[in-house]
Simulated scan of single mutants.
Amino acid sequence: MPAESPTILATSGGYRPGSRTRLEFNKLVHHAVDLSGASGRAPKVAHVGTASGDQRWFNNEVSEAGRLAGFDLTHLNLFTMPNVENIEEYLLEQDVVWVNGGSVVNLLAVWRAHELEGIFRRAWEAGVVLAGVSAGSICWFKGGTTDSFGPELRAVNNGLGLLPFDNGVHYDSEAARRPTVHRLVADGTLGETHCSDDGVGLLYRGTELVEAFTEVPGKAAYRVTRVRSAGSTGDVLEERLEPTAL
């Protein structure tokens, strides 16, 4: 059963240390599954690890997390070739697509080489919940901030653009994230930017931000916008969005 409307859960979280495995899915991933409306069977979750090169050791750890969660979890690998015959058919069969972190710049380049831009849009429009962490959050927006080019954060502006905003991840856990977002919004490099502390997810119905959720107490989301003033490049307004605890 697809989600009632096109749905994206863009996060800076989703994992936690496991008791018998290195990692387990945290509440944000389970919430993405809840949003899909899947019931009466194991939810079908596709893990997409393009941003870190489809590392098979990490796939194995995600498979273990999926088994513990009771998901029917599979992987879409693009290295060294796609592991499914028809990517669009595969994605349209899923309840949730969970995109892992890594290099958002490399992820976008590889996705476009495989013509996934339109495929993800059609899956989104069909009610498959699109979700992910870090690079797997930024990719759904126009762009955001990234360390894909090197240790100094830079803007990326060629996201899929399903959401007409920019995105800032790891807003509280890396010291350069907040000031970089502020600077890039102030000078017009980024537009309205929606940011998440670690452990927080942003929920979009269609292209509207409807709510934020957290799996970690005390964390928040933020909306950063440019405030133009005469004779200046612009100041920024940061609005704190209190999330709902999962």
Rank of each mutant, 00 (worst) to 15 (best):
H114V: 05
V200M: 05
W98D: 06
A155K: 13
H194D: 03
E208K: 08
L209Q: 01
L153N: 01
A113G: 00
A123G: 09
C139L: 15
I119N: 07
Y204V: 04
T180E: 05
R121L: 11
P179C: 10
F213S: 05
V169Y: 11
V99M: 13
W111C: 05
Y90C: 06
E192F: 04
A175E: 12
L107H: 07
G159Y: 14
A131T: 14
L130H: 14
N158M: 05
E125A: 11
L91Y: 07
F165E: 04
S103G: 06
T189W: 01
F141G: 12
V185S: 03
E192K: 15
L184C: 08
G136H: 14
H114Q: 09
G159W: 14
P151S: 15
F165V: 06
Y204T: 04
N157T: 12
L91H: 07
Y171P: 06
L163W: 14
L107P: 00
G150S: 04
G127H: 12
W98L: 10
D147C: 02
H194K: 15
G191N: 07
H114E: 08
L163P: 06
V99G: 01
G118T: 09
L116H: 04
A176E: 15
R112M: 04
D187Q: 09
R177N: 09
A155S: 15
L107A: 10
W124K: 05
R205K: 11
G144Y: 04
C139T: 10
A186I: 04
V97L: 11
R178S: 09
A186Y: 01
S137D: 03
N157K: 13
G102H: 10
G206S: 06
V97N: 08
L92Q: 12
D197R: 05
E117P: 00
I119Q: 06
L190G: 07
L116Y: 01
F141M: 10
F149A: 01
V128D: 05
L203C: 02
V210I: 14
Y204K: 13
N158G: 07
V200N: 02
A186L: 08
E93N: 14
E125D: 13
L163Q: 13
G143V: 13
W140T: 09
V200L: 03
L160K: 14
S137V: 02
H114A: 06
E152Y: 02
D197Q: 08
V105A: 09
E208W: 00
D187P: 03
L203W: 07
L108I: 00
V104D: 09
E152G: 08
E115P: 00
V105G: 02
H194L: 15
Y171W: 13
G188D: 06
D95G: 00
G159V: 03
L107M: 14
T146F: 06
P164R: 15
G127Y: 11
V128F: 01
G201H: 09
R154V: 00
L203A: 03
F165I: 05
H170G: 00
V96K: 12
G101C: 02
S196P: 00
S148D: 01
G150V: 03
P164H: 15
V110A: 09
D197A: 07
A123N: 10
A135M: 10
L91G: 05
Y171N: 13
E174R: 14
E211I: 00
F120W: 11
Y90R: 08
N157P: 00
